[in-house]
Design a protein around this nucleic acid. Structure first.
Lengths: 198, 198, 198, 198
DNA sequence: AATGAATGAGGATTCATTCAT
DNA sequence: AATGAATGAATCCTCATTCAT
């Protein structure tokens, strides 16, 4: 598959993904047909299969490319900040603002978890995310900012907490991203340190 | 619809629901066909439509009847316990053990949230659950066990926390129900009281 | 099949036929299910198959028994009237009043003509009706009331005209039966004689 | 729906309609399945739903497009004939020859009258037909060719008579179209004038 | 790159009919 | 005579995918 795409081709592809993500989130993956997607863009069906191997493939692409995008946001926010705990905070804030802008994706990830064939993508996203955080945590430990411990467990907890807060307060309760980010950061660092810093 | 069912009929119906719930949880709602369900029971396709109006109807039935069952478990556990906080604790423990036995339902509820037509059922379940807890909380406030506050907010928090812990530790991490129940109870009462009791 | 039926049995059977005729006329033969019929009477499905071999059989029964009923009405009206032309007139008037009372059957006969399997019943009804009229016409010719001619052709014309007038004015235009009968009788005798009797 | 069709597409669509009309007429609407139609053309099932929304939709299309075709025939026959009574005659003759070529449609229209959902289409066809004739009748009255009267009533009578003659003599008795047309025209003009023109 | 057309397996649902009680 | 339950073929329709142009 892997076509070489022109600029225009890349735009078309992105357009299809975005439209599909919106429809999947609104109506569900299965209730949304490939026809729905292409018709809503006013193009023929061939277009779809020019850019994607299958509907399933498209969905997986959405899942992983969303994660890529989120990660780019985190990295941009972190820049070359030297303090590892501060890097974690910046990443968390960036994530929260991205979640806020992409609330509809919660449904997609929620759905993906219910079918076996999509779980591998979720797992892979997860691994990448954990590895990122683990890196900062190890640095923090090495530099003595936080007590030693299993960085993977901490990373999972941290990510899980952030995601849960996002889902609960951004998606379900519609709170402002700023406030949720504050809560997440505070909880995160508390948790990481084991107790409030005096 | 509303048929008069004999004993045998009620059993068949329950059997269909249980089998369908299992398949839906394992493969997803859409990928599971009505044929899958009836064939796995070795009965004709008509049987399904004798007991349910549609596949959608069956799924809604599963959602709400699961909630009914959970609630029966809570009520049985609570009995006529007079202390309202203790009632909450008993309810939480009962829920946790039910969650442990019905881990597969997490997938169903997760999926239900992704399609508009199923959300009303979820909302209704939620309302009932909240009302139950609110009752106990009001009693606890009236009797001076906990400070006054908005009982609905507390109830939501309590239920949300319990459900999240269950999903995280029972479903994803496979911890023993007992341990998770302890954590949930402790967290719950902390939260309710605003601080640890000395 | 041919069961020996008790009085109650005959009533049940008649009740089923009447209800079915009503539903068939209102919704169409195919869109009306056997379940519709029995449910609308609040009885089980077994009842239906106790009295009729099949849905098709029931419909044929309705067609031919309706015709029987009409014929009984005609014969009762004719009694032992000696004048053959008067017998035709009385038969026509009786038919018209029966048509008026059973307007809904037009739909059934109209439908029956569209499916091959029901046409034989219609044809048989037709033959009986024609034979009846032919008898009177032959008498009228023998007695010199009308000129000789092919009585079968005349009978067909006569029946066709009557039926068309009934459909047009009773069913579609909702005219009173009396008036339509007058028109039919007048037309009929005109036609038979070739010109008005001075 | 409303697709843009290529030449080939329009042909396919017409082919489907013609084949379906034939099968519906021969076997009845309900006994003819969508599979029957597509299989008899050796095409896939999806083709049907590419061109029609549903079986019901197709049937309605047949009903109204048949009427359109008949009307086109009438208009072609009438051309720019200036005499309104002559226009009616030409229309009647054209209709009769079209009826003769499309005898099978009698069954379809007969069936359509037996189910509520199809009656609106029949009614609409009727209205158009009546309006056409009314126009000519009004002209004829204005020009003094026929006495004043309610043109709608006359139009209904005229159409009804023509249709009945067609059904009786073309469809049931298989007479030649010419002869039936003569009879219809003669009857029609007699009727319109109230008596033969000297 | 893109379109209209076509495929055909698969899915939900209906329903005439039969069966056990 | 009658009921609730069961059967399973048949039906309409959908839709991911492919093809010809």
């Amino acid at each position: 598959m892997k076509r070489k795409l022109t600029q225009r081709g890349r735009e078309r592809r992105a357009q299809l993904m975005e439209r599909a993500a919106g429809l999947f989130a609104a109506q569900g993956y299965h209730p949304t047909s490939v026809s729905d997607v292409v018709e809503s863009l006013g193009v023929g069906k061939g277009v779809f299969y020019w850019y994607f191997e299958s509907k399933e493939d498209l969905f997986k692409e959405i899942l992983s490319s969303s994660h890529h995008e989120l990660r780019r946001r985190q990295q941009a926010a972190i820049g070359d900040e030297p303090d590892p705990l501060r890097r974690i905070e910046l990443g968390m804030r960036a994530s929260m603002s991205w979640f806020a802008e992409n609330r509809h994706l919660f449904n997609l990830f929620g759905f993906a978890a219910t079918e076996e064939r999509f779980r591998p993508v979720l797992r892979q996203n997860e691994e990448v995310a954990v590895a990122d955080v683990v890196k900062h945590l190890k640095d923090a430990m090495a530099e003595g900012h936080i007590p030693d411990g299993d960085p993977a467990v901490l990373a999972h907890a941290l990510i899980g907490a952030g995601r849960h807060l996002a889902r609960t307060y951004l998606y379900e309760a519609n709170e402002p991203a700023e406030a949720v980010a504050d809560a997440a950061v505070s909880f995160t660092l508390y948790g990481v340190n084991g107790r409030p810093r005096g």
